[in-house]
Each structure stands twice: as C-alpha cells, then as structure tokens.
Design a protein around this nucleic acid. Structure first.
Lengths: 143, 143
DNA sequence: ATCTAACAGTTAGATATCTAATTATAGCGG
DNA sequence: CCGCTATAATTAGATATCTAACTGTTAGAT
C-alpha cells in the first residue's frame, strides 16, 4: 500500500481516527446513544442558550446536518426547540429531562472510553500528541 | 465544550482527522479525483491482482462500500472487473490506461499534500506520532 | 454424486454528512 | 416606510458509509 518514500501521515491519522470513532460509537450504542447524539447533547449542555449555528460549529458539522439530528432527537423527546423571543430567526435548543438523563449516561460511557483510550500514555505524551495534532491542523489551514 | 477533567483525546483526534481529510479531499478534487477514488486506485495499484475483499480491507471500508466505488469507477472507464478463471467467485480488478493516468496525477497531488502536512515535523517527531497512533489503535482493540 | 457450509460479491435500505437553494426574520440607508 | 442585504434555519438532493439479506461459486463430508 505504499508507492511513497515514507508512509503518509494523513493516511495513518485517518485510519486511526476511524477505528477510534467506531469503537467509541460502539461504546455509546451500548449505553443507549450514538456518536452524533452524544456530540449534540454535549454541545447543548456546554453552552447556555446557544443557537444552532454555534452548536454546529462546536461539533464540527454543518448547520444542515445538525438540523437533521435535532429533528430526530426532538422526535425522541430528548430536546425542545423554540424561537428566541429576542431574535425570532434564532431557535433556542434545550434538553428535556430525558435528554439530561441520557447526557449523564453517555458522559459516564465517554469517561470510561477516554480512560481506556489513554491507557499507557503519560500526561506528558498526551500533551505532545495534542501539540502535534494542533500542528497538523495549522498546516492544513484549519484554525 | 468540556464537562471533563481533561479534554478527551478521541475528540481532538476525530476533529483533526476530519479537517485533514477535508483538506486532502479538496486537494484531490483540484487534481480531478476524490479521496475514495484515490484510495481505491492506490489499493489496486499496490496489490498485484487482489480481490475485492482484500482491497476493501486495505482501504479500511466494507466490501459493499467498495462495490459502490468500483461501479462508479468502472462506469467512468477507470478500471475493469473480470472473473478470476481460477476461482469464479473472485473478481479481479485492473486499471485501464485512464485509471493509470489518474493514479499518477493523484499520486503527485498526494505527495504535495503530505509534504504540506508534515511541515515543521522532524522525522523523529513523526515517528513518535506514528507510535502514539499505534498505541491508540491497540487500546481500542483495532489491530 | 450430492449436500452443506463457507466464501466473494452485489443489492437493499439505513444513517451521516455535505452543498446549494429556499424561507423567514432583522437591520439599515435613503 | 421601503427595499436591500445579511443572518438563522430548513429543505432538497448528492455522496459515503454501514449492516443485513441475497446470489452465485467452491470445497469438503459422507
């Protein structure tokens, strides 16, 4: 798989990220959610009264994609959307009790998974890793 | 965005991989391809007479997904599929001249992109980075 | 020789994502 | 006020991916 002098970094990165994401999603499904549902819940929780554009930005998806997830999650009774009375273009998203409960469950699952993922990596190496990821993002123009 | 003691590694990894993949795809589109087309061409080139199951494994996708791409690429005249006379269950995939030409074009684009992505990273740090990715894969059970 | 289990690939249908076009609302310049 | 431009969200349609079910082919057991 390599007509290259050295194995391309991006390929390794992409493959690893895919495997990790799949494993994480499996852990979340186990706990009654999915990766996009978790990210949506997390972004709503982490921002008092954010609008959808901001939420999408936090998650790293487009607004149209978020609309899709919010529709499903609203149908499932995990959250509500209502117009902001101050600016009626904006829809304010809020978790229901069921949404809060699922958030807490998935948060536990995410903590367990993160611990598993970090096994054998010192804080120092984790820091280095984060630095390298930041460098790659910079090299690619993304942030 | 963090009801966590420390920022989860997986989140950072996933976000970075997505940005890098999007930038890479944009570079390939510029050169007349796409990421999945490139990966398919690369896997076919890197394996003398592989069957589709093996190709899919190399790329890291399911067989059904590969079928989809091969259909499109066959229609575009980039490759041909024929039954293996030795084992008629197997379909042998081969690039056409157009496929070979596109492979070479995209290979150049990939080399340029990889160089950009690696900017500012010594071989030593790259090695460390690859090691950490391998550790994450191991922690998650993938390979 | 036939039957059955395994294997390679395709098909069908679901989910997640994107971009472009559309709808509704807001705010500003004249 | 009116109309233009910008903004927030949704809708429509495309692409990439997955899993599960199906089709065809092979090989081994009796």
């Amino acid at each position: 798989m390599t007509p290259f002098e050295r194995p391309p970094v991006g390929m390794n990165l992409g493959r690893t990220a895919k495997l990790v994401a799949q494993a994480f999603d499996a852990a979340l499904v186990e706990a009654g959610g999915t990766l996009p549902v978790w990210l949506t819940l997390l972004s709503v929780k982490s921002s008092k009264q954010a609008n959808q554009r901001e939420l999408a930005g936090m998650i790293g998806i487009q607004g149209a994609t978020l609309t899709h997830h919010l529709n499903a999650m609203e149908t499932q009774g995990l959250l509500t959307r209502r117009r902001d009375p101050v600016n009626r273009r904006v829809h304010l998203v809020e978790l229901t009790e069921a949404g809060e409960a699922l958030f807490e469950t998935l948060r536990q699952a995410a903590l367990v998974f993160d611990k598993r993922l970090r096994a054998g990596l010192s804080d120092e190496r984790l820091k280095e890793f984060a630095d390298m990821l930041a460098l790659l993002r910079a090299n690619v123009g993304g942030m």
